[in-house]
Design a protein around this nucleic acid. Structure first.
Length: 485
RNA sequence: GCCCCCGUCGUCUAGCGGCCCAGGACAUUGCCCUUUCACGGCAAAGAUCAGGGGUUCGAAUCCCCUCGGGGGUACCA
């Protein structure tokens, strides 16, 4: 019997970024490695910060990366609902239990008072914590305030002089003294629970065995441990994963460029490349493995090899990884990506019309691509019958105008006569022409490349000529020659 | 301020007392391949293992202090 159950519990306050998803992926890997369950739970307890579309974005990001979930808000499961806003009664009854036990209490302090209190404590350099003004309210006062509809929260009464110990899966022993903690809020004045309460209640009621979350949660873990204890729950195992930082070593944010995982899709990154890149942020297999497929990851994933230090996100390595995965794609699979990108750029008609050329071009651009979105620019000159090339650009080859005329004339003559328009024949024949004309291959082929593609860098020339075919090749050469007559 | 975590090449990391005057990868530089650009191959440079004390025959690895970085300190998660 296997009862490993882990969860990814994002709040729909924005698009998930790479750190966020990395945490989700580690949870997923842990579940799959152990044959356990991976559940998605949406923590929408902050009604003010809800962002429209965020919920959809979260599920879309997971789907794009092929991170599937066993239970979640969209597909249900035995412990649902998986949307915290639909579980309010559960939290309320937990809060009531805490009040009954004497560790939860009503607090009627308003925000102004709390802010002033904090400011004062800051100035006095004393510990910043709630002063427990409402801890010892009489039942009468409470009843009266309640019936007068005075806004209130429910707080948890931190026990004094306790040492809370955590045996963290990645950080080992950590301990806190409860005297440093203050009476945090369990239920907010809008009736919604805070993260602390909802999280503990749900992880327990959803039977979560391991809580693998980002390191930023470490400081609030003693509060959670206290709640587990107060509610009589057995706490899960905790593992606090290293954070992912921007190049300036601060928490990832918009300042660092693309942050939402879906932006990487739009930028032309392959999901498996992104996965491979991020799985290596904080986890390693040995001293040399870089490229590793999904199966292998699942097979080898081991929390014991998750590191403690935060990792800086290095886009250069992702780029390299992406190029690597592009080159690994079969021609057929790459073609689908190329086609998709080209349709977006040139429209379906053009792509259909030149589908044959595109198919032949795909393996040629494969080793040159870094992003899937590189494709349109790399193939644009074969997706037309009439390419117009500037005279000035043609002249960037190192040949003089008269040599250009001579070279083009000779080439045109050859192309007109050549019947076997295959790249091998073209290459051997044109090398002979180049030799007869006594131009350097660099200059001669450079000229032809300029004329045929309007580019100074392309896949091998003869492959391009073969794709273009004699008619198109000839018309491009003719057009160019006219510019010099 | 207080609390917690972390600290090996610019970056991701291997290393869990002797194999390490520290290995791999990205990026960088050079060479080779070559009609261009890439890919690929080879090579170089790059870390006094944050600093200082211990422990030990022996420390990047264990302990302590300092410094540095990060996180938390909300009726946000």
């Amino acid at each position: 019997m296997n009862d490993i159950r882990v969860r990814y519990a994002p709040s729909p306050t924005g698009q998930p970024h790479i750190g966020n998803i990395r945490t989700a992926f580690f949870n997923w890997l842990y579940a799959r490695h152990n044959g356990g369950k991976f559940v998605v739970r949406i923590e929408d307890t902050d009604q003010e910060r809800l962002v429209e579309g965020a919920y959809e974005g979260i599920l879309e990001a997971l789907s794009w990366l092929n991170i599937d979930w066993d239970e979640g808000p969209d597909k249900g499961g035995p412990f649902g609902p998986y949307l915290q806003s639909e579980r309010l009664e559960v939290y309320n009854s937990a809060a009531n239990i805490l009040i009954t036990k004497g560790v939860g209490y009503y607090c009627f302090c308003d925000r102004d008072r709390l802010n002033n209190l904090r400011k004062q404590q800051q100035e006095n350099k004393s510990d910043i914590k709630y002063d427990r003004k409402c801890l010892n309210l009489s039942n009468d006062e409470i009843e009266q305030n309640l019936s007068n509809n005075i806004p209130h929260v429910i707080r948890y009464k931190i026990p004094a002089d306790n040492t809370i110990q955590l045996n963290d899966i990645v950080r080992d022993e950590v301990e806190w003294n409860t005297n440093l903690l203050d009476d945090f809020v369990l239920i907010k004045s809008d009736g919604f629970p805070t993260y602390h309460l909802a999280n503990v209640v749900d992880d327990h009621s959803m039977n979560i065995s391991h809580v693998l979350r980002a390191e930023e949660w470490l400081p609030s873990t003693p509060r959670h441990l206290l709640l587990y204890d107060a509610l009589g729950y057995e706490p899960p195992q905790f593992g606090h994963l290293p954070m992912i930082l921007g190049p300036d070593r601060s928490k990832l944010s918009k300042r660092h460029g693309a942050t939402s995982i879906l932006e990487y899709r739009d930028l032309g990154y392959l999901p498996e490349a992104v996965i491979n890149f991020m799985v290596l942020l904080g986890w390693s297999i040995d001293d040399h493995t870089e490229i590793i497929n999904r199966q292998e990851m699942v097979k080898l994933f081991d929390l014991g090899r998750v590191g403690k230090p935060a990792a800086v996100f290095d886009i250069d390595k992702l780029d390299w990884m992406n190029g690597n995965y592009i080159r690994d794609l079969s021609d057929e699979d790459l073609f689908e990506h190329v086609k998709h990108a080209c349709i977006g750029e040139f429209g379906e008609n053009i792509v259909d019309q030149y589908s044959d050329r595109l198919t032949k071009m795909t393996p040629l651009i494969s080793p040159r691509m870094k992003y899937v979105t590189d494709a349109p620019d790399m193939v644009s000159y074969i997706l037309t019958d009439n390419l117009s090339v500037e005279k000035e650009f043609i002249e960037t080859c190192k040949l003089s105008s008269s040599d250009i005329t001579i070279a083009l004339t000779a080439t045109i003559k050859y192309v007109q006569e050549e019947i076997d328009f295959s790249k091998d024949t073209l290459e051997s024949e044109m090398r002979i022409i180049c030799g007869q004309l006594e131009y350097s291959p660099r200059n001669y082929f450079g000229l032809i490349r300029n004329v045929l593609t309007s580019r100074s860098a392309t896949p091998p020339l003869f492959d391009i000529m073969e794709i273009l075919g004699p008619r198109d090749t000839l018309s491009r050469l003719d057009n160019a020659l006219k510019l010099f007559q």
